[in-house]
Nucleic acid binder design. Structure first.
Lengths: 342, 342
DNA sequence: TTTTTTTAATAAAATAGTATAATAAACATT
DNA sequence: AATGTTTATTATACTATTTTATTAAAAAAA
């Protein structure tokens, strides 16, 4: 069966014009088409299993109904990031409901950093959701200045962009305060990523706020930089446990990194939480099943994806250019690693 | 700045025809264009920051250079599947290199099961990579019969489709044999999913093969069905440990489920591997950092993605319709949970 | 009966490119 | 000088759709 059926074919078979076919198939009731021809066209279209060519339609309507989702993260981050599927699922949910397609692209290295710029210019996409943008991205700023719809995921810091995120600072503050409420005074922190990552910076800020509220001085030697992987947690914990005066608790700003840190602590023969309390951040699907179950911050990936997409589509359809930020409260999941008896 | 510049504009400014502009910009050297006009056109295009409209190009060339990636998994599977980002990264890598775009879609529920059928018919995509297809999918079979390029991920069983997978059966056989070589005779198995999932069936087959080779009778009460989540591992382990005669080892065909199982075992006060040996399957980024580190099968998600995409593009470009299967050997990662001293 | 209005359908233009065939000018061949 | 060939360029057609303006026929109003 030839599967390249166009309106032309239907028009020929129904002995009407292409225009009439278009009116019927698009239900343009304001163009008065007689019931007889209407039925005739519809029947033939159905019989031929006709689907309109989306490309031709896009060309003439000048819209593609496609949004681009771009992941510009560090490769290590991508590979150990257990959250991406959830975000993607959220994006997918809203996009599908509103009739949008998703074009996805990772851009690991700098040479195709501008992949979204191309896609916009080539008129492939009508909106961008961007995860982990770099702050020095001129082309992104250029697009934004032209009013192209852009929503960032996880970058509450950037003033001039719309974004979907959680309140990293408040969440970190909350969980560190929880440790303080258990009586800890010497609390270490392991970041989730190098400090040029905004989320990393914000979580550190929350940690410092909590210390301040608890009248504890910030101590530089209790802070360590993690970078995405369990291994980095393992390595960094080694450093922290070799201090003359070791901490009594650690806030690891990523569960995945925390798993590595826990591994080292236990190998040293120390008990969690008795010898060393430990809390994480992210609440991966595994965090409740390690030993001991990890007290952490729940990062609602699905909701972040949903919010980003709803926001983007709002901007696209309303032409609303004011920058809106949807910042979710991230709640704490208390398990045993912090010393709570459950 | 008006960002809707077309060839028409360039032609007008360069005082040449649209055709000439097209020839220059597409580097059609066989159409002899004088160096002078060539330069003139190129300069203007550059100055105007011109990008060709991909939609118009697609319409006339009748190709979109787009492949669809469809995830049809159980929702629970998606949410606890730590492998998707890796597969996606592999797909992305090859697609990008070969100049293809990726349209992504989850289809959780049955009402939009045919999303890929639509996309094919509307001429949006030229090839399909499909993860976890159902065997009763008529539209998929219809497309396949028409010769539309399709590659399945993780379905080595289906005879009439091209696919990219690992050798689930051999991998399972290998790791269960490893347990047997440690002297275990009473080995339980927890599947990774219900048995209507092919991978689940194949891993079970490998388990049975290993038992057979070791002259151990298959014992129905030692087999349990897991379904994607750590919780299911936890629950199922409870059942297995309540048997009159409990197993001495367990093969859990998914690390994520294994984490739940380990949690229950340890809560019962049993030591792994001394009181109960345990091995998993998948090698998530966390598997080396739990206590004890998990002996498992390395599932190379990135390579599966790369292979699927290479294969698909081969089919698309060569029109090769013979069904090729790329089945990777999955090697065993020996850590401590099986009883090996490392 | 003529004019106006409504109904039903269509021709033609537009979207932004590519491809083919035609053409004029320059150059080479006999 | 007439003819053939090469070079450089362009007019036209085509992709599959939507949209606007037009038209013919039928119905209603004068």
């Amino acid at each position: 069966m030839n599967k390249n059926i166009s309106m032309k074919d239907i028009a020929r078979m129904a002995k009407v014009s292409r225009t009439t076919v278009s009116f019927v198939l698009n239900n343009r009731t304001e163009m008065k088409i007689s019931e007889a021809t209407r039925k005739k066209v519809l029947d033939i279209a159905r019989k031929l299993d006709y689907y309109p060519n989306a490309i031709a339609k896009s060309l003439v309507t000048r819209e593609t109904k496609t949004i681009g989702f771009f992941l510009g993260q560090d490769l290590r981050s991508v590979l150990s990031d257990v959250l991406i599927p959830q975000v993607l699922l959220g994006i997918n949910k809203v996009a599908l409901k509103k009739g949008y397609k998703i074009l996805l692209q990772y851009f690991e290295d700098s040479n195709n950093k501008s992949s979204y710029y191309h896609m916009v210019r080539e008129k492939r996409i009508e909106g961008i959701i961007l995860s982990s943008p770099r702050s020095d991205d001129e082309e992104l700023i250029k697009l934004k200045e032209e009013g192209f719809p852009i929503v960032l995921i996880g970058q509450a810091e950037k003033k001039s962009f719309s974004c979907s995120d959680i309140d990293n600072t408040e969440a970190a503050r909350k969980i560190v305060s929880h440790l303080i409420s258990h009586g800890h005074k010497r609390i270490a922190m392991v970041t989730n990523a190098p400090l040029n990552y905004t989320a990393s910076k914000l979580r550190l800020l929350g940690y410092r706020k909590a210390l301040e509220e608890g009248n504890i001085d910030f101590n530089d030697e209790l802070m360590a930089i993690g970078n995405f992987t369990p291994k980095s947690g393992f390595d960094v914990m080694k450093k922290l446990l070799s201090l003359k005066k070791i901490p009594t608790a650690v806030f690891v700003a990523s569960d995945v990194i925390a798993f590595g840190a826990m591994d080292y602590i236990k190998r040293k023969g120390m008990k969690i939480p008795d010898d060393m309390a430990l809390v994480g951040f992210d609440n991966t699907s595994l965090s409740g099943y390690v030993d001991p179950p990890l007290t952490t911050i729940n990062l609602p990936g699905f909701d972040i994806g949903v919010n980003a997409t709803s926001l983007l589509i709002d901007i696209m359809e309303d032409g609303n250019t004011s920058n809106k930020k949807i910042i979710l409260d991230a709640n704490m999941i208390i398990r045993r690693s912090c010393g709570c008896n459950l």
